[in-house]
Simulated scan of single mutants.
Amino acid sequence: MAYGESRIVRVIKGRRPKIAVIGGGTGLPVILNALKEQNAEITAIVTVADDGGSSGVIRDYINVVPPGDIRNVIVSLSDIPKQEKDIFQYRFNSKDSFFAGHAIGNLIIAALDEMKGNIFDAVQSLSKMMKVDGHIFPASNEPLTLNAEFMDGTIESGETEITSKNKQIKRVWVTDSDSDAEPKAVLPVLAAIMQADAVVLGPGSLFTSILPNLMISNLGEAVRKTKAEVIYICNIMTQRGETDNFTAADHVRVINNHLGGHYIDTALVNGAKIDMDKFHPEDYDEYLVPVRSDFEGLRKQDCRVITDDFIDQRSGLVFHDGRKVAKEILNIAFEAYARRRQEG
């Protein structure tokens, strides 16, 4: 039985642990699917500052929040049959200048956004259609632009432009793509963070998938104020153009600096050795080297560190093992809920 489980499960018997997961990218659905299998009550808060791939092209044609991350999260939490999920995920291989490379799900999300008048209502409607177990909330109801200042003082806008510079990033922030209004998260997003037992950041690209959400002013404030345990799932490998040579402590430090204090309560850090002979960096050149733990640096960030074998590299690639990570998240959520009960 996992650490703390025998003591805490009795306290929350009959209540699903509430987990709010904030992020984007390919790693997020892996964790969400595993948490779903563990019967957690999940709220996925998904970044809307992406400007690449099919999402970016649709965003250029139609004034809509980029749908790619939202599409993948919907599939990860959906209870519809696999064949229907495969149709939703299908990408056209047509030579047509518009449809080539687009996923059907992205087009459906864009259509619903037009029908409903905003992305939040569109995602709620689609979640019902896709029989989603949990809640999926865009981090903002408007398309956002990611901005970055580099260590040399230069500034760039747009995820693709930022990462292509291959320069060390000092800080990032987001702006409304269509107006001068300050980006805001809608109330259900804030409520999910405040009511959660655990708020999970990651896994995902530090500067382009995690921090854009936290830079939405009222969303970041909710993370600072929540009584939930704030957990950071540290990336397994460094990422070209974003976190070259970063340790686990560097990742946590950057998040804390952007939040303005030590707000990461627990960091989940992989401790297993990665078999680089099975890894193929020529095919996945955004990954450079395994992230080092740096326990002394992590302690300076005032966060608890949980180190374990959190990876699945059976395919010859390196991914988080969703079940291992989800199990640890639930243990932490159980502890946090019990502690809040005791504190009244």
Rank of each mutant, 00 (worst) to 15 (best):
G241N: 12
P143L: 07
G101N: 12
R292T: 14
S76H: 09
G23D: 01
E286A: 08
T266Q: 07
T208S: 13
E84V: 11
I80K: 03
N93Y: 06
S217F: 06
I8T: 14
A336S: 15
I169P: 06
A326W: 09
M1R: 10
I169E: 01
G68M: 09
F207R: 00
N235L: 10
N93Q: 08
H102D: 00
L206I: 12
F319W: 15
A326F: 13
D50I: 08
Y337H: 15
Y90N: 03
V21N: 01
I136T: 03
Y287W: 14
A148N: 05
N257S: 10
R314T: 14
N141G: 15
V199G: 07
N106F: 12
I22A: 01
K324H: 07
Q342K: 11
A44W: 07
D178Y: 13
Q313Y: 10
R314G: 15
R59H: 09
C303R: 01
A336T: 06
N72E: 13
N245Q: 07
V230K: 12
L268R: 01
V64W: 04
G53F: 04
S217Y: 12
K85A: 01
A198D: 04
A100N: 15
D321I: 04
G261E: 02
D308S: 15
N256P: 13
R59A: 08
G25V: 05
A198Y: 09
G117P: 07
V305F: 06
I22N: 00
E41D: 15
V11H: 05
Q124P: 01
E229C: 14
P29I: 11
Y3W: 13
F207Q: 01
L211C: 08
S205D: 14
L259C: 03
V75K: 00
T145N: 13
T226N: 06
S177C: 01
K170D: 08
A196M: 09
H258R: 10
K131V: 05
V254S: 01
I70Q: 03
V75N: 02
D178W: 03
K116H: 13
P138E: 05
T243P: 08
L201N: 03
D60T: 08
V289H: 13
A326I: 14
E282D: 12
K13P: 00
D250N: 14
A267S: 09
G14L: 12
V189Y: 08
Q301F: 00
V30Y: 02
V291P: 02
L77V: 04
P67A: 11
N141Q: 11
H262L: 07
E242P: 09
T175H: 08
F310Y: 14
R171A: 11
L219F: 13
Y284H: 15
L146T: 10
L288Y: 06
K36Y: 04
L107M: 14
